[in-house]
Design a protein around this nucleic acid. Sequence first.
DNA 1: CCATGAACACGCTGTTCATCG
DNA 2: CGATGAACAGCGTGTTCATGG
Lengths: 120, 120
Amino acid sequence: MGEHKSRFLVKQRAFLKIYLISMAEKEQLYGKKYQEVIINKFKKYGYKPNHSEIYKSLYELIDDGILARKEKVKEGMKYQKVVNYIIKDTDKVKLYKKQLKVELDRCYGLLGQAIQDIYK
Amino acid sequence: MGEHKSRFLVKQRAFLKIYLISMAEKEQLYGKKYQEVIINKFKKYGYKPNHSEIYKSLYELIDDGILARKEKVKEGMKYQKVVNYIIKDTDKVKLYKKQLKVELDRCYGLLGQAIQDIYK
DNA sequence: CCATGAACACGCTGTTCATCG
DNA sequence: CGATGAACAGCGTGTTCATGG
């Protein structure tokens, strides 16, 4: 919703949200697992989001009506209850992905220009 | 100095500082002018840093011993006093530029991978 | 102990206010 | 009014604490 007159770079929360959506489309995991996957994915970039940010991102996605919760008993474990997430509204997913594409491209271009200006 | 175990993207302040250094190497302007140039440069990316961030960045650069102040009477104007900035320590400039190169490349790569992962 | 989630604290950044010529 | 700078406020994010199985 909110259009920003002036923003430097994309906020971490928005970044995590689009990444979580994208992951949820492929495989249903639970919060902690998503965190592990993301940390592993971005290890070489030294980016290690903490668990709170993941949960807050997931919470917002549910609040936005994009994802839905699905409680489940963790396989192989005694009685550990975890929360899986499924896509709830594919139209909203499409819209959000489109919006974030614009934003990520903007940031990518901004950084690229800076690197060009300063180091070339 | 501070090594961060986990950072998402470069902070605006660091971004402005390296940009200001780079500009100060080419032409000596004063705070407000630097802001105008930067805004103009990044207009197409919708990035419009406010004057406070510019001044705080310049202040930090002086505190770091990288830039030096040089008060001056604005040309053509009645008695407007402005502050110009000159490079004080070229070694520190080199070091800072090198450090920021690493950081900017990191962010650029991180965003690139995300765009790749999500949209390709 | 593992996963989830809430509460709390802090740092970065934007907005507003103050000064000076 | 143009430039500089300080004070203040809000928000995003990291750290810590709490709950449940």
